[in-house]
Design a protein around this nucleic acid. Structure first.
Lengths: 311, 311
DNA sequence: TATGGGGATAGATAAAATCTATGCATCTTC
DNA sequence: GAAGATGCATAGATTTTATCTATCCCCATA
């Protein structure tokens, strides 16, 4: 079977991006006729018209769209092959870019990073804190090698591994009736002013689903920008909220006068996991980091009494 | 980033297969120096040694193995890209190779094929009957485009879609005590001589699991080669067995004197599904065939009384 | 130590990829 | 509606790459 060249596929993808032969050629650092004839040859190999030549630029046919999609996957795999081989030549070297969501990073990373530095001093970690969508995007475009996020989260071409559970705790002003109620269940919050993070944080969605609130019609529509802010707002008497146990244990409420309590039946609000691009040459390192996080999480579980002691 | 050529990757894969530069070159229809320098260049691009040059031939390094694995995937995707584009240029043309397991094909295909011929007369279907492992192998090496098998069946690089359930029915000699027992449950078979298909048929495993028998230590160790044979053996008084409802409805017991009855609580012994290679350009057609099978199966379910009428 | 399989190297040659220059449409603008 | 601009295709020259032939080197083995 006659295959198109990777280079030709690159040209095709550039053309798909630029919708113009000349601009695509420029992007690829070749002249327009070169790219033009390359595309023509791909069309000949495939026996289908891929590009519609129009007065102003070019557009892809249906077959072209489908082909470009496959071509991108192939080029990505090829890039992975190269990266993986480089990696094999110099294992655990180079920068590793790790992302984490804002409701995890400040509470999980300090301990995990210390562990990692101790056990794998040769790993050069670069960190990025962002919301899940952007982290996934980062994995896709290779600006990130792995990301710590809340699971489940399905995304095409992304693989994940679960590292542990995170419980949701109630927090509220000390004088709030729920803070001292006999019993406490997530449903009790439904009729309260529940403070939430601003839109885009997955924790917001998890919190909403735990107390069966609709995304829109609840009282408080100003969102906190961070968990620290959220705690301040609760302390200021603006309402009650849910706090991930991992944040509580890291002392996010230190110095404020709020009540924290577990629900009568513990609420596993979210799972903590690590994600990487399927086929990433860094998968092994990602799993290794995952193991380290898992250890951090289970160490915490072991001395779980610590929480009750503090609150 | 500098990428190796698809051609170079082909050379590398050939070398992995042949474990010899000269033979690999022959396979690729180039001379040995050509292949030799190509491999050398790939190693230069990747910055790793991929091949160990030994006195007698060549062997891959660890990095080489990993690279070859990725290379094969890339070449496969590239072949798919070409095939998909060809397909797009001439949809529904060309031969479609469909596999099916022996415990499905004779009972499911007659009706399905008639439907298919009616609704898609342009589809040229080639059929192959074989056991699951071989069908999967066929999907992998592109000698098959899709296969009707029993699910669940997980295999890397294979995608499946469930099309319907298949109930297991009791069959036994008319005079057997279970044939006329008040109540009938799968566990009742555990102490009987249960006749099974020969090894390698997935139906054998499903049957074993339904009546909680171990793969080895049951009485009858001669296996039937087909369901028709199995029915003959039951009719001959050699023991009892389980029969997929789809086979019973197709009349596999016609002309023999055996008792068929449903279990008191219906036993969904297996699911029927269609499988194709992930990324196959024929996925659409596979799903289309799947829809046709699904229709066949649900039509059957609709006039389900037919079974009770016959037995 | 002679022999032969197996791979590397060098230089010649064939094939390809790419470039420059130019042509031919179509759309814009005045 | 003619001039100019934009955008892709074509032709031929040129450079680059791939491949081939011929030969050498290594080393296991007889």
């Amino acid at each position: 079977m006659h295959l198109p060249t990777l280079r030709q596929l690159q040209f095709l993808c550039a053309l798909a991006d630029e919708k113009s032969f000349s601009r695509a050629a420029e992007v690829c650092n070749v002249t327009q006729p070169t790219l033009s004839s390359a595309i023509k040859e791909v069309e000949a190999i495939l026996g289908v018209q891929l590009v519609e030549r129009e007065a102003r630029g070019a557009s892809l046919t249906r077959a072209g769209e489908a082909t470009v999609e496959r071509a991108r996957a192939i080029l990505s795999s090829a890039a992975d092959l190269v990266a993986a081989a480089h990696q094999a030549g110099a294992p655990l070297t180079g920068h590793f870019h790790l992302g984490a969501i804002p409701t995890l990073a400040p509470f999980l990373l300090p301990r995990t990073l210390a562990d990692l530095r101790a056990s794998h001093p040769e790993l050069r970690l670069y960190l990025r804190e962002d919301q899940t969508e952007r982290l996934i995007e980062g994995l896709r475009n290779r600006t990130l090698d792995a990301a710590l996020i809340a699971l489940p989260w399905q995304a095409g071409g992304i693989e994940t591994e679960t590292l542990g559970d995170d419980e949701f705790l109630y927090i509220g002003p000390k004088e709030h009736k729920l803070s001292t109620a006999k019993k406490l269940a997530p449903e009790d919050l439904t009729s309260e002013d529940v403070l939430l993070l601003e839109d885009g944080h997955c924790l917001r969605d998890h919190a909403l689903s735990v107390c069966s609130l609709s995304p829109t019609g609840n009282g408080s529509n100003v969102g906190a920008t961070s968990l620290a802010t959220l705690v301040q707002m609760v302390a200021g008497g603006l309402g009650v909220s849910l706090l991930p146990r991992i944040a509580a244990e890291a002392g996010v409420t230190a110095g404020t006068d709020v009540a924290i309590r577990r629900f009568d039946t513990p609420v596993i609000g979210r799972q903590i996991g690590i994600a990487w691009r399927a086929g990433s040459p860094r998968e092994k390192e990602a799993r290794m980091i995952g193991d380290c996080v898992r250890k951090t999480l289970s160490d915490r579980a072991a001395d779980g009494a610590g929480l009750e002691a503090r609150v």
